[in-house]
Amino acid sequence: MNIENLANKYKEHVINLRREFHRFPEESWREERTSRRVKEELQKIGVDFEATAKTGIVATLRGKNPGKIVALRADMDAIRVKEATGAEFESENEGIMHACGHDGHMAMLIGAAKILKELQNEWDGTVKFIFQPAEEVGEGAAKVIEEGFLDDVQGAFGIHLWSDLPCGKVSVEEGPRMACADIFKIKIKGKGGHGSLPHQGVDAVVAASAIVMNLQTAVSREINPMEPAVVSVGALKAGTRFNVIASEAILEGTTRCFNEEIRQQFPKILERISKNTAASFKAEAELEYIFATPITINDKKCSSIARGSVEKIAGSDAVVLMDKLTVTEDIGRYFEKIHGVLAFVGVRNEKKDAIYPQHHEKYTIDEDALEIGTALYAQYALDFLNYKGL
């Protein structure tokens, strides 16, 4: 029996698992029930596993002979969104929802483990199934790496169910696919005073407001217009009362880009703009900058392998091109260490009301995509293990 047939054989089981995970979503680093259920499923399959990154799991399956090692990865965490889908399996954890497809990722990876276990005597090498927590906060991948679970791995593969692609379509092209997501905080220090006597103080609110506006020139006037980049201030906190000149203000925001050189320039640009702008108002500014989640870059050879895998299970028409995204994915940390590719598997279907974007309260998927993703996980693993160029 081939991979396509096995994926179809386990389709109902994968759908049921996805719905169960969806009913009981858990936030980053709190995936306790989710972790227990994944372990129970792996025990049923007969795959050895061990814990990683607090609530994560790494399962290992060896083929008939030694060979290369490939990692298949699924993320586990949900986000703080109050669900409004009205589904029978709607979230039972108030205010928390699987609104990004991670429920499907886990279910598909379990399905792939079942397939590869059934075919265990037909392939050489080793497959690691990584169920990774805390992707939404950009911390889980780093912990998995820190604990050494990629040290002996030659390649990694992940899937992201994606609402902008029609069900039946898959994107696996090479190069930058998802942006980095770095974090900045700017503290502005002024001098307090009475709102009726502004000349006696140094207004941190005015200085902060000017910094917000001037930061927009970081992209529009300092970055090559052919290079996508984002500087967004998401929070401005200042003041205690309507008639008090604020002595302090705090700005918090994010930068995004697909170019590592630009990424390294951002702290210098933001610091210069914020300090000089603040000084023009007789205030002071201090920048805190965190390099958080790296750029997700698909390896050329791995993308070629993945394209072949898609064509085997769904035909050449299933492969589509998709614009890169300024959202982020911490699987990029894996790809900094080893060769890898992230596939985007379409879940959009207007007839099934699967039309809402990731993180939307009505986000849902065409569950037919789960069969494609399950097969793709398994097919890519075998194709990578058989590939001679890595």
Rank of each mutant, 00 (worst) to 15 (best):
I3C: 06
A7Y: 09
N8V: 06
K9H: 14
Y10T: 01
E12V: 13
H13S: 11
V14Q: 04
V14T: 11
V14M: 07
R19I: 13
F21A: 04
P25M: 14
W29M: 14
R33D: 07
V38N: 02
V38A: 03
E40I: 01
L42T: 07
I45D: 05
A51P: 00
T55Q: 07
R62D: 13
G63A: 10
K68A: 13
R73P: 09
D75C: 10
M76C: 06
I79H: 00
K82H: 13
E92C: 08
M97N: 01
M97K: 00
A99K: 03
H102Q: 10
D103G: 09
H105E: 11
H105W: 07
A107E: 09
L109D: 00
A113K: 02
I115E: 06
I115H: 04
K117F: 13
Q120G: 02
G125V: 08
F131T: 02
V137H: 01
E146D: 15
F149M: 01
F149C: 02
D151G: 02
D152A: 05
F157D: 07
F157W: 08
W162Q: 01
P166K: 11
G168W: 12
C180I: 05
A181I: 06
D182M: 08
K185C: 12
I186T: 02
K187F: 13
S196A: 15
A204T: 01
V206S: 05
P225G: 03
P225C: 07
V230L: 07
A238M: 05
A238S: 15
N243F: 13
S247Q: 14
T255N: 05
R256L: 07
F258W: 02
F281P: 00
K282S: 15
I295T: 06
D299C: 09
C302A: 15
A306H: 04
I313A: 06
A314P: 00
A314S: 11
A314C: 07
S316T: 12
D317Q: 14
D317S: 15
V319R: 00
V319A: 07
K324L: 12
K324S: 14
E329D: 15
E336K: 14
H339A: 15
G340T: 04
A343P: 01
A343M: 06
F344W: 09
G346N: 09
N349I: 12
E350C: 04
P357C: 09
Q358W: 11
H359P: 03
Y363L: 10
I365W: 04
D366H: 08
E371P: 00
A375N: 00
Q379C: 05
K388P: 10
K388W: 05
K388F: 04
